[in-house]
Design a protein around this nucleic acid. Sequence first.
RNA 1: GUGGGUGUAGCUCAGCUGGUUAGAGUGCCGGGUUGUGGCCCCGGAGGCCGAGGGUUCAAAUCCCUUCACUCACCCCA
Length: 420
Amino acid sequence: MEKITAIRGFKDILPEDARRFWEVESIARQVFNSFGFQEIRTPIMEKTELFQRSIGETTDIVEKEMYTFADRDNEFLTLRPEATASVIRAYIEHNMSAAEQITKLFTIGPMFRRERPQKGRFRQFNQIDVELFGEDKPQSDAEIIFMLMHFLTSAGLKDLQLEINSLGCASCRPVFSQAVINFLKGSEKNLCPDCQRRINTNPLRVFDCKVETCADTIANAPTILDFLCADCESHFAQVQSFLKDLRISFAINPRMVRGLDYYTKTAFEVKSNALGAQNAVAGGGRYNGLVSSLGGPEVAGIGFGVGFERLIVCLPEDGKNKFKTDLFIATLGEQAQKFAFTLTNELRRSGISAEMDYADKSLKSQLKRADKLNSSFAVIIGDKEISEKQAILRNMKTKDQQTIPLDDLLKSIIKIIKER
RNA sequence: GUGGGUGUAGCUCAGCUGGUUAGAGUGCCGGGUUGUGGCCCCGGAGGCCGAGGGUUCAAAUCCCUUCACUCACCCCA
């Protein structure tokens, strides 16, 4: 029989990691709540058009990375490659802008992109995504970056590098783009084939190219910061000033270009050395024209996404907590096992994690299993104890043992464990 | 989609230029203690050597094909 394996790029999250996911998620909820963000859950599938319109027709994500297929009525559906579009769709659909001036949302869940898998990149991956609508002040940019950094450090990440940039707006970015195109046109022959193509499709991407000749060529190119309009320039300066007030250290990376078309003004990325080539744990930016371009009102927006799997990789090893059991009930003999079966389940009903064995194993092997389950206590009941109407409670760490009458065994155990 | 690396026990890996019953560590099960875990000692189970084909008296080892995993590129969290 041939083994059936998981789909390429789709990973099982095994218990040890699932536990870390759960822990990071609860930290996220707690941090975001304290900044006034509330959770929203949107479907993992949307109409294909939503992503085409938001992410941009010519981006790699839309051109070749989406899981898109025709539904039975021939409507095209897509497994979401990112969360922002869905959250905005929900924001517009439920008319949230009418209910309040400022809306703060976050969502956690799986995203799908059909890329070739590598370290830190999967076809199904989880993101923590935050969006803030209705606020264009630079304070909100600084605040959301502050929240991101606070969350990441709370989760246990160290040695993070924050990079920020401004991508300009609809009035100043085109001027800059044209300037880059003009600059590159002069030295096209020094560029790799990819970059020669990019001059026409997405010239700013050349800044990202790792080919040496391209990097050398682009090194002397003008940067966006020389072209910002008065409004964008002042906004960016204030963002920096507020970040300093919040004592957040950052580097300005004038060459940072983000892959989604919708960003305006502030863009940012958080990198970690613990990762491989895909070293960004989180990235985000402002997207002031996006909501209206999707049919909503003219509201500003800013947000970020955190790669969950990447975050987990950055976590220090000792951050993992082992699974623990409160007590293991070891039995010898039929009477004892029958008694223990009821006891075990009653303990569980009281919220105590209890385990026992049904396989008539030796006491030694039962205690061995208690040890492996990281059990704090063991109860030993043999038919002898049943006839004497008492049981042995063993502290697995100190090896102390005490006998307890069977009559109030349940109560005694609950008391001892809960008082511990 | 393109390129490099790797596929041998549950896991991590050894197996030199082909040579007979394919190994280690760890984990698992059992015993040493006829009712007491971790340490130690002893024993055991567990492999169509990724799959298919070829060369050969003989293939885990050499050749071809294919698949998977992995890292990197494009791009992104």
